[in-house]
Design a protein around this nucleic acid. Sequence first.
RNA 1: GGCCCCGUAGCUCAGUUGGUUAGAGCGCCGCCCUGUCACGGCGGAGGCCGCCGGUUCAAGUCCGGUCGGGGUCGCCA
Length: 602
Amino acid sequence: MLRTHQAGTLRAGDIGTTVTLTGWVDRRRDHGGVAFLDLRDASGIVQVVVRDEEVAHPLRSEFVLQITGQVAQRPEGNTNPNLGTGEIEVVASDVVVLNTAAALPFQVSTALDEQVTVGEEVRLKYRYLDLRRPGPAQAIRLRSAVNRAARTVLDGEGFVEIETPTLTRSTPEGARDFLVPARLAPGSWYALPQSPQLFKQLLMVSGMERYYQIARCYRDEDFRADRQPEFTQLDVEMSFVEQDDVIALAEQVLVALWELIGYTIPTPIPRMTYAEAMRRFGTDKPDLRFGQELTDLTEYFADTGFRVFQAPYVGAVVMPGGGSQPRRQFDAWQEWAKQRGAKGLAYVTIGADGTLGGPVAKNLTDAERDGLAEATGARPGDCIFFAAGAQSTSRALLGAARLEIGRRCDLIDSDAWAFVWVVDAPLFKPTGEDDDVAVGSGAWTAVHHAFTSPTPEWIEDFESDPGNALAYAYDIVCNGNEIGGGSIRIHARDVQERVFAVMGITEEEAKEKFGFLLEAFAFGAPPHGGIAFGWDRIVALLAGADSIRDVIAFPKSGGGYDPLTGAPAPITAAQRKEAGVDAKPETAASADGPGAAPGTGE
RNA sequence: GGCCCCGUAGCUCAGUUGGUUAGAGCGCCGCCCUGUCACGGCGGAGGCCGCCGGUUCAAGUCCGGUCGGGGUCGCCA
């Protein structure tokens, strides 16, 4: 080793010891005859005193040094309470420059970490320098601790960590595949997996019984703050289990993770049905850190004369103190709603004396006005926002409005953690409802994925009422973020065929797309189910990061561009030729199979 | 793909109703400084104002387009 001690670990107890340290020059303070260097390594910072001006003068920020010297008590009044090593300093007897450093594109110094903001673009381009800073470095170290904690829990429960291929077959899942040309089979392509979903189910057929993997997944879709083209899941699958078993295991993992930041998640984590979540919060991932639940006013306005409220669904959400917003602010709400594809956002204000105001109020009868505050729970000074129309879109709008109200009115305790399982989601949704690409010829498509089992109550006759059939699936939601989800799978061939039938997928199409899985299931597939956690998002939540980019060592920026390596980049003509990118498929038929089945990704 | 915001020195930003030579802090370079810890002092370098076009006597500033970044809806579990 080039050193005997780590810089940040030295304490008063080391006084008198001769040590050799290595690290970077965090800052330097050169006084002519005496110079102070803040030497930084992974453990922290220690002050080094250099009395030889010849030696100290040429040193610059981020030079890599090897320092030998004696640990000494700092002179009276010169201690630095901001440093763990502030009681002592190292008086250098020998300074070796292990490497020099060019002037930096941005300042790295620990001392400036919280005072200097650097744009994300530069930080990502020089991510290796960014990671020298304590904040970004801490996030990456936390991620390592999170991985370790999960592995400890799963190893203790008898799970087997198994790697699955990243070069695989393009299977019809929800998202677009990343494709890799196969040099040895020009015109044929590998796909990068959107998730290890199919492989983990095969491992259950293998009798592994308990599988997990910290798995990289790839989806070629547009990005968001919480989305990257490659991302990580903690992927888990178990045999001979029911929903409660998977949930119990998942809770063990989550508890272990949040313990890392000193929070004990109360278990069991409460559960809510999908229907209840939609009814009360207008979303399948409710943020339970605050109230302002939606009110269903469909019955209330059943006989209304107001045209706008003569709709299949009328609902409302209350904005506390919103009654005094200026007109301009209400116009902004209209714009906000329109940006979400709504026609607008009707509202009623409640004056201090309880009289209703706003353009909608005069369209209501006296009776409708009188009972409104009570029906919605609104109080004087509040305002009530309404959405009327189709139930799903109206609730979605109110749910989004609720979140916006929570933010604007500061109703959300940012230190709170609110977990909930959302269970009993519908098994199918009508095709075309959200402008989905129609799958096969069916009127229905899977909400989760095509291998999700109906709940035990529905398994016999989900065909009779596909719209109300429930999936044996569960999502774990934290503070309004879906951080994981899974399901009990179909293991019986006849059930699988019946599900495909509802979705309008013919036997031939099923064989073409997931024949290998169906074949495997013919050889004694055990009942099984599992879950996948959105690892990047979970670590981001634990780290208090705004973006999952903060918890990924080398993330991509918008457009899938990596500012550090410059990927993606053009390839040479020779590479093109060798890769077979331009090869023409021999038959058009094989490349033109049935459409994609949605939602196979977990 | 739609909408919103941002592109000025290495970094973070200011730049008036369009008006001479585009500024600040930090960083960088040189010199000085023996107890600092965001050390200090003096001096200095550093700008295709993202790019292209337009309006104008005159554009960092106004207009159109484009590229890049961020956010959001679509999309995506």
